[in-house]
Design a protein around this nucleic acid. Structure first.
Lengths: 251, 251
DNA sequence: ATATGTGAAAGCGTTCACAGCA
DNA sequence: TGCTGTGAACGCTTTCACATAT
């Protein structure tokens, strides 16, 4: 069992393999993949505004990164810009969509229909971006059959059959922490290889399963750290003889 | 305006400053901070189970990292273990809490009381971890005064006064994307320096404001990328002359 | 004997700066 | 001239491996 990230997958590739899309996809850094998704969103907005061409500088500004990083990220997926001009927005959109695997539909199952599960089931951002919510599960028998966001809730015991039948490829865990590992195990045995985990638990999964986690408490605590750091810095600068306004108090 | 991360904060510190907590806090890598929050959660569970001592190996396993990384992370906050024995759980908990600034209360304001806002307002994980939800805001006048999760919703126009009065230090944006930047600007002018953004928008903020984002569509697309990569690899291995089971098909 | 704490090495990701092309 | 694409330099993060302490 590997925790949270498959480290080294042992797939054999021939040494003289051409640097084609397959090999290239493998080489894209995880951080760049996350940013490609952001570029794609910004570019989609551009298409709606009727923008046809964009420079790395402009796109980078809109995506909140610097232009060197943007160009490097785009270079991982190929060279689709025109020197001296910029990028064709639609061309870029279609290449990023291809690399991110968005030409294919990814059915989603949400497990745990509490506050968060409700919100996720009703969230319009998923279906509109090629991630239809195909199944909902909860352990509460009273919820079974009740439609949420237009989809009837199934009992958690039916995960295996329902996920197989509806070709679910992404499982979303929105259960209480105590239930998360058991739910995860069921999803994995149902053949789900990608999991988005909202429960504050470190899931143990086989190497071939990809887990991403969204942990609100952790996000809050990182923000808290920065609040504290700032307060300490302000105090520390005075202690070190320099006030926050740069005036030397103790030279 | 800097986007999403203050790069270089220009604070002057004297060169002979002692390597005390203040200086150390500044030196902790961002990645380590996120993991410290995870260690804290695992350790809190240990306390409840009555565990008093734990080794780096055990804690690392429970947190889903390797023990070298765990020890390095803990070394950033000081040396609180006992060689040949391990760490005192309670001692570690209190030191991590101090570093993360959790000895201080951080009031939270949630803006945008839709599906997600409701879920966040009702989410028990915040108050129980020192992040009381102190204010809720929405633009819909019909919602004003309606209590959600025990807190009455205020109108978005009152952000400045209410946030100041209730000493809000963290703002959570759960609005539609179109409204996010305007809400962010209001939070910032209300003195909020930390923002957790659920809206799929790149927020523009001054350097001194810390933004963290949770973007569900991006998470989904990263998972989609891995689905695609796996499919390509499986196909690619055959194309390259080697089947998935290692058998050479085209030597 | 056993497990921490940490320099040093290795690995990744970001930034620089400029060659190359329209 | 202007902007992309990218090798090289840089800095951050992880891993290694062992000195150090109980």
């Amino acid at each position: 069992m590997a925790a949270q990230r498959g480290e080294g997958d042992g797939v054999v590739t021939s040494p003289e393999a051409p640097a084609d899309v397959r090999e290239r996809a493998r080489a894209i850094p995880e951080a760049a993949v996350a940013r490609l998704a952001v570029y794609l969103r910004v570019l989609s907005g551009m298409v709606e505004q009727g923008v046809t061409t964009i420079s790395s500088e402009e796109l980078a500004g809109a995506a909140g990164v610097n232009s060197a990083k943007l160009r490097k990220d785009l270079s991982y997926i190929g060279s689709y810009g025109t020197r001296g001009v910029g990028y064709d927005v639609e061309v870029l959109v279609s290449h990023i969509e291809r690399i991110l695997g968005l030409t294919r539909k990814h059915s989603v199952a949400v497990v745990g229909i509490g506050n968060l599960g409700h919100a996720l089931a009703n969230y319009g951002g998923f279906p509109s971006r090629g991630f239809p919510v195909a199944a909902l599960f909860d352990i509460d028998p009273d919820l079974t059959g009740v439609p949420v966001g237009g989809i009837p809730v199934n009992h958690i015991d039916d995960i295996t059959s329902v996920c197989a039948e509806r070709e679910v490829s992404i499982g979303v865990i929105a259960t209480p922490p105590q239930a998360a590992q058991a739910v995860c195990d069921r999803l994995v045995s149902a053949g789900v290889q990608c999991i988005l985990n909202f429960a504050p638990v470190v899931l143990q999964v086989p190497d071939y399963v990809e887990v991403r986690k969204v942990d609100l408490a952790v996000e809050m605590q990182i923000l808290s750290f920065h609040v504290a750091r700032r307060a300490d810095e302000a105090a520390g600068d005075v202690v070190n003889g320099i006030g926050v306004d740069g005036v030397v108090i103790r030279p």
